[in-house]
Amino acid sequence: MQPKYNRFVTRDRNWHPPAYAPGYKTSVARSPQQALMSMQQPTASELTGPDFSHLRVGPYDNDLLMNFTQGEGLPQGERIILFGRVVDQFGKPVPHTLVEMWQANAGGRYRHKKDAYLAPLDPHFGGVGRCLTDDQGFYRFRTIKPGPYPWPNDVNSWRPAHIHVSVMGPSISSRLITQMYFEGDPLIPLCPIVQTLKDPEAVETMVGRLDMANSRPMDCLAYRFNIVVRGELQTFFENQ
């Protein structure tokens, strides 16, 4: 008797950016030319995935104001709460799933040995966070709003302010890495990486919304970013 696993809603590859998107120049030599091979019948290898509930996450792992210096000094920048809910395509919350994020500092500089942008490092800011969603699928980080930064694509390309967000979901089939942009940023429509998406509605799924109700007076603003991962289809019928 084989264990039964739920299938997932087919990933719409016209909704996601294509591998080859010449406006984003690095994709040109890094995009497969052959068609993807369809796994006609997904197996346990695709339908299962890691459960990180037992990963020992530190008390400041989701608090980027504190986690680099353990509170010895606060970073520069606009203090924000980044929060949201991870749900699947049927709206079902995804509890206890790992959400990870990384970002530049308020000046647009990353704490990475390869980043040499003019903006200085912030001695009080690392730029990494992680947490597990709660029983209802909610996650929460405290951080600063990252700055935009220039990058070598077109002669004068700038990334809109963004936070890189990674989520596992119920299986490796739902694995997703995206970037959250900030509502109203005029750099969003100019960005070659954003433009890898064909559908403006798909871009909307990556925009975090200012949420005044969840902001803290005299402390920090809040941005809400809900994440939708692939839906698990219930198995109604078996071949037999």
Binding site: W15, P17, W102, R130, H164, T178, L197, G231
Partner: peptide, 22 residues
């Protein structure tokens, strides 16, 4: 996408600095 279904959040490149986070 149907009366029952939401669209998946779109993917973006992990970028050159993925190591900071992962």
């Amino acid at each position: 996408v149907s009366e029952m279904m939401l669209r998946e959040t779109a993917s973006q490149t992990a970028g050159p600095y993925v190591h900071i986070g992962l």
